[in-house]
């Protein structure tokens, strides 16, 4: 099964709106086993991937931390990050790294879990990962939001599929489950953002 909600359909939708030129340089941050990277390369993009827990023979897959990217400043046309930012430990750091490696007006396309928070709740973590919290983080990291799409159904589907197949989702979804355990609802969102100039 695909390792992120929506599977290939999600990657396609993320790419469709961004509309990159052939040969565009794309980084898949938190690429897992590199399925999406290979797909992107097959589509004619110059894609590379990085993941904390991967050791790959393939030259375009790097082992590394998305909060400390081993890439030069202004070197990518796009960064793709599916369902990784929320669990990478240092979301802000990672976003700033994305901004650093992106060329001016380069695009960040991200998909992740957000907390459908209670407005009255003033818990820092909840605010930070609410829909508004995510947008604030994007702004602070130097991005302007182009578009967002709610895709909670994908998450549900992904979750049920994993349940049926007996896949252990603790590592990937422990974050989500932790908030749901506290009584918050969670949703899934796609964001397209652009690196602000300068």
């Amino acid at each position: 099964m695909s390792l992120h909600p929506g599977g290939k359909k999600a990657t396609e939708e993320l790419l469709a709106f961004a509309d990159f030129d052939a040969g565009a340089k794309i980084l898949d941050a938190g690429c897992g086993v590199g399925e999406t990277v290979r797909y992107l390369r097959a589509q004619g993009y110059d894609a590379v991937g990085i993941d904390k827990a991967i050791s790959s023979e393939e030259a375009f897959i790097y082992q590394g931390d998305i909060t400390a990217l081993p890439f030069a400043d202004n070197s990518f046309d796009a960064v793709l990050c599916e369902c990784v930012l929320s669990i990478c430990g240092e979301t802000m750091l990672a976003l700033k790294e994305f901004a650093r490696v992106l060329k001016p007006l380069g695009k960040l396309i991200a998909a992740d879990v957000y907390i459908i928070g209670n407005e009255k709740q003033k818990v820092l973590q909840i605010e930070r990962y609410s829909g508004q919290g995510w947008e604030k983080m994007l702004r602070e990291a130097g991005f302007s939001l182009l578009k967002k799409e709610e895709r909670t159904a994908w998450m549900r589907e992904h979750y049920l599929q994993a349940l049926w197949q007996g896949t252990d989702l603790k590592e990937k979804w422990g974050w989500d489950e932790n908030y749901r355990a506290q009584g918050y609802q969670t949703g899934y969102m796609l964001w397209w953002a652009q690196k602000t100039e300068g």
């Binding site: 599977g7 290939k8 359909k9 589907e157 049926w164 197949q165």
Partner: peptide, 9 residues
């Protein structure tokens, strides 16, 4: 090209 998702076949 919607993929058809089936959990068990």
């Amino acid at each position: 090209m919607e993929e058809k998702k089936v959990y068990e076949s």
